[in-house]
């Protein structure tokens, strides 16, 4: 299902999804040629992050995780600055102080990014607390994976949000299960005793929405409902977006096991390789989004390839920018400990 938006807006979301996919693919390729340290990619979850964050307004704040690249790109952070930060260059958003695990940009509504699982749930709750008490009509979004629900910070935070009716949206991207597990209905994750993730929410009386995180229209509708509740004084919402774990995330380091995405697979099934057929034919959320767009006749296949070519060129340029950038002066490490 496509988001209930204008054709132009849907295509804008498609472009953002392609940006994320190509950004991460270029990054994995870059990691093959040099040591860039530990990093996490957002491949496979594009159609959760893009439509969810599309609805935010300037001044709203989002708190993401170690798997943050897609979220920042969805809000328009320049890829060149992100690659530069990931490479520790002075042209990165944080001048090399944070790297991939802490990518943030206050200008784009990401004040800080915690890579400690469950680290940001109190922070997002607190931003909503600040908005409410200072009388600001703003919403705080907490983006996290299913693992954060195993942390104590989750229970302390949702209790505060529920009691104070805070304008916060907890968007849980459940990528805990691989394709086969999901088919067998084995939610939620292997290290949670709860039968269902929302069982960790309902005792607090916070409304919950469970959706297919690969269904852009469902994400759009759920976020719309949650934002309306938050902005109208109705308090918090918990959304569980069930995504499919991309096979390339299976190893310790991301690998392009499914290859660089050929978006033409969306309309030409003869291009789908035998290996990872299920991923390409059914599970890849971006390919699914493209099929839905084509079914609505919003754009011609050739125009999608042209869009992709443009985005891919931009990503290559952004990588070049980052590679050509200087490292920060080493002694700058001593600065900005305090304001």
């Amino acid at each position: 299902m496509l988001p209930k938006l204008s054709g132009e807006q849907v295509l804008e979301q498609l472009r953002l999804a392609i940006v994320i996919r190509r950004f991460e693919e270029e990054l994995i390729k870059l990691a093959g040629s040099r040591d860039i340290g530990h990093f996490h990619v957002y491949i496979g979850q594009e159609m959760t992050g893009v439509p969810a964050l599309y609805l935010l307004e300037r001044g709203d704040l989002s708190f993401t995780t170690h798997r943050n690249h897609g979220h920042l790109l969805a809000r328009g952070v320049p890829a060149s600055q992100m690659y530069a930060e990931i490479l520790g260059k002075e042209t990165g958003m944080m001048g090399g102080r944070g790297g991939t695990l802490h990518l943030c940009s206050m200008e784009h509504g990401f004040p800080t990014t915690s890579s400690a699982v469950g680290g940001a749930t109190p922070l997002a709750t607190g931003a909503a607390f600040g908005f409410q008490r200072l009388g600001q009509d703003r919403v705080s979004v907490c983006l996290f994976g299913d693992g954060a629900l195993e942390e104590g910070s989750w229970h302390e935070s949702i209790n505060i949000a529920a009691m104070e009716k805070l304008p916060v949206i907890y968007l849980c991207e459940n990528n805990s299960l691989e394709a086969l597990g999901q088919k067998a209905g084995e939610y939620p994750s292997s290290t949670l005793a709860a039968v269902d993730l929302i069982d960790l929410v309902t005792p607090f009386g916070v409304p919950t929405i469970q959706i297919d995180g690969c269904d852009a229209g469902a994400v759009h509708a759920a976020m719309g409902e949650a934002l309306h509740r938050a902005r109208s004084g109705g308090g918090a919402t918990f959304i569980e977006a069930r995504t499919v774990r991309w096979p390339g995330n299976r190893p310790i380091w991301p690998e392009l096991s499914t290859g660089e995405t050929n978006f033409a697979m969306a309309w030409d099934s003869s291009l789908v390789p035998t290996e990872y057929r299920e991923w390409h034919a059914e599970q890849d959320a971006v390919l699914r989004f493209i099929r839905e767009i084509l079914a609505e006749g919003l754009i011609e296949p050739e125009a999608i390839l042209a869009m992709d070519a443009e985005v891919s060129a931009e990503m290559k340029e952004a990588v070049e920018f980052a590679l050509a950038s200087n490292y920060p002066p080493a002694a700058a490490a001593m600065e900005k400990v305090l304001a």
Partner: peptide, 17 residues
């Protein structure tokens, strides 16, 4: 809930509180 409310204060401080 010291973890929860200390963290809540940190988040609130980012909004200008």
């Amino acid at each position: 809930a010291e973890l929860g409310y200390l963290g809540t204060a940190i988040g609130a401080a980012m909004t200008g509180m």
